[in-house]
Design a protein around this nucleic acid. Structure first.
Length: 549
RNA sequence: GCUCCGGUGGUCUAGCGGUUAGGACGCCUCCCUUUCAAGGAGGAAAUCGCGGGUUCGAAUCCCGUCCGGAGUACCA
């Protein structure tokens, strides 16, 4: 199909469900005052994760969209834990989610940890409170749902037969959709395990207006009857999430577009209850470089791993927002406030996007460069104190071509210690390197030579430059000048003067001839900040000491 | 198989019937320069998945087709 986005969008815009939500959802992009909370309906959005693993960047983006949208419209952001699958839920994972969200600075107005008027906010607790039971009875009573008692074996056989036949698959009524109430009663009295299914209407067209794609349509005959309540009495996602969204007054549902194919069921469920539907916003997935959906299997997709590497929270947020969303103009590096102001559902893209780490690195570097050196250091110190970062660098696999993770962390620790001992000097060291790194952690190895007497020395460079016939005399003369040098603050000027006069005294044509060997002697490497600045941070006595070593 | 969704340089995107298809990352060249970055100036890179149609005119509208993805669970 060709790209029909504009038509879909404008069509949807003209068609929307309710005047109230319309003005909020489709507030003009620019040039006018956003209509914040002036309408009769205020925005309520929710992040409803199933804590079954790590929080990855795709999920982070979903929360971010929720957060941006809530902020933009002065709405409410809710956290709801979807733990209806007892076998998969893990408390550690929930902790990971809490930690990540805290790191990201996403705060919730309602949720299990802060409470709120629509609690409880954990589905297992809502189940215990009888919420789903109550609602499923309502559907049963109105005959919009029914009990079904097929065994797993029967279901499997059914599926197999369907597969052989080709065509649609799923549960389209089996033996129970229109079963005699007495038969159902008998089955129940026999104690047969059964489930409750939604009676999806037949012969109809089911529709849903997606905020990104416009109107979606399904032939209801293609939609099978989803299980609402499992045999163990727990509600399925299909049921619990819809019921909760309604009960919690959720106005806009941001979710991954992997839900698109079951959206018809959700539409049917809302209809069965006679409830007004929230606006669904099916966000495209973020895929890895191989084009496959992000998962633990390939690459670091865990948000805390990026955090550990020293990507700034605002960089990650900014970067991730731009996968699938655009402010409509050419802006890229944006503050959270700017993103909030620019956020608009119309800027959302339907196609999946790749996570390009190189661009993230660039974006982070831009931020690191723009910050005050002291602020950069503060961020690094904070990072070094994070247990998840320590854990990351201790356990991460070394990558070929990348610096050894243990060395990186060691460098970070040295720098952090230096910060506590001589903060001013540490800040200066950071200042000289902040425009040369992409991440905070890179600062560790980069600054190491300042504070570690046993800093590593590039053997090849040493071999080349120390072999120059004038090298030892250069070092000696320079060291003597250092002995006499009156340093003021971190002013590089006197160091340059000293170097210049060395060049003259030795009769060297190129200034580089004195710079290179000195740089290697002092820092162990051929690359890095300006030599005079570097010397100024080291100070005359330390420079002299290293020259004589 | 069936259902639904998607498809603009390698990547993220702008585009809303008339543009030399714009920007950004990355890549390359040059300048700056004590190295590396940063910065500046350039460059390569998109027949807008493909084919038809509508139109004076299509990346934009329509149809078809291909490819990719998701779902097809008593997982979310």
């Amino acid at each position: 199909m060709s790209r029909g986005r504009p038509a879909h969008r404008s069509a949807h815009r003209a068609r929307g469900r309710s005047g109230a939500s319309l003005s909020l959802v489709y507030a003009p992009r620019a040039g006018r005052t956003p209509q914040v909370s002036s309408g009769p309906m205020s925005v309520r959005v929710r992040f409803a994760p199933s804590p079954t693993g790590m929080l990855h960047v795709g999920a982070l983006r979903t929360v971010l969209f929720n957060w941006l949208f809530a902020k933009k419209h002065g709405g409410t952001l809710i956290l709801r834990i979807e733990d209806t699958d007892q076998s998969r839920y893990s408390p550690e994972s929930e902790q990971e989610f809490v930690d990540t969200l805290a790191w990201a600075g996403i705060e919730f107005d309602e949720g299990p940890h802060v409470g709120g008027p629509h609690g409880p906010y954990r589905q297992s607790e809502r189940k215990a409170a009888g919420i789903y039971e109550h609602h499923v009875q309502r559907l049963l009573a109105s005959r919009d749902a029914y009990w079904a008692f097929e065994t797993p074996e029967e279901l499997a056989a059914m599926r197999e037969a369907q597969e052989k036949q080709g065509g649609k698959s799923g549960y389209f009524g089996g033996a129970w959709r229109d079963a005699d109430p007495e038969r159902v009663a008998v089955a129940k009295s026999e104690g047969r395990p059964g489930v409750v299914r939604l009676k999806v209407p037949r012969g109809q067209t089911l529709t849903m207006d997606d905020a990104i794609r416009g109107r979606l349509e399904w032939d209801s005959d293609q939609i099978d009857d989803p299980v609402l309540i499992k045999a163990d009495g727990m509600p399925t996602y299909h049921f619990a999430a819809m019921v909760d969204d309604h009960l919690m007054g959720v106005t806009h549902v941001f979710r991954g577009d992997e839900w698109l194919s079951s959206a018809a069921k959700h539409a049917a469920l809302f209809d069965a209850f006679g409830w007004e539907r929230p606006v669904f916003v099916h966000c495209p997935v973020i895929v890895g470089n191989d084009g496959k959906k992000l998962s633990k299997r390939h690459g670091a997709t865990r948000v805390l791993d990026y955090a550990s590497q020293g990507f700034l929270r605002d960089s990650i947020l900014n970067f991730v927002a731009l996968i699938g969303w655009s402010p409509g103009d050419d802006r890229e590096v944006m503050s959270r406030e700017e993103m909030v102001a620019a956020f608009d559902l119309r800027g959302l893209q339907p196609s999946p996007g790749k996570f390009d780490i190189e661009k993230l690195r660039w974006m982070n570097a831009v931020r690191v460069r723009a910050m005050a050196a002291s602020e950069v250091l503060d961020n690094l110190v904070a990072l070094a104190g994070e247990p998840f970062a320590e854990e990351y660098w201790r356990t991460v696999e070394p990558e070929p071509g990348e610096p050894d993770p243990r060395e990186v962390w060691e460098g970070v620790r040295i720098l952090v210690r230096a910060a506590s001992e001589d903060c001013e000097r540490a800040v200066e060291a950071v200042r000289l390197h902040q425009e040369r790194v992409h991440t905070l952690a890179e600062l560790g190895p980069a600054c190491r030579f300042f504070f570690d007497p046993d800093f590593p020395i590039d053997a090849k460079a040493a071999e080349k430059w120390f072999a120059e016939p004038y090298a030892s005399e250069l070092f000696q003369r320079l060291a003597e000048k250092m002995d006499r040098l009156q340093a003021v603050g971190f002013d590089p000027a006197p160091y340059e003067a000293a170097l210049r006069s060395c060049q003259e005294e030795l009769g060297l044509e190129k200034f580089a001839a004195v710079v290179h060997p000195t740089r290697v002697k002092l820092s162990g490497r051929t690359i890095g900040p300006g030599l005079f600045e570097l010397m100024a941070v080291l100070g005359p006595s330390e420079v002299a000491r290293r020259l004589r070593k």
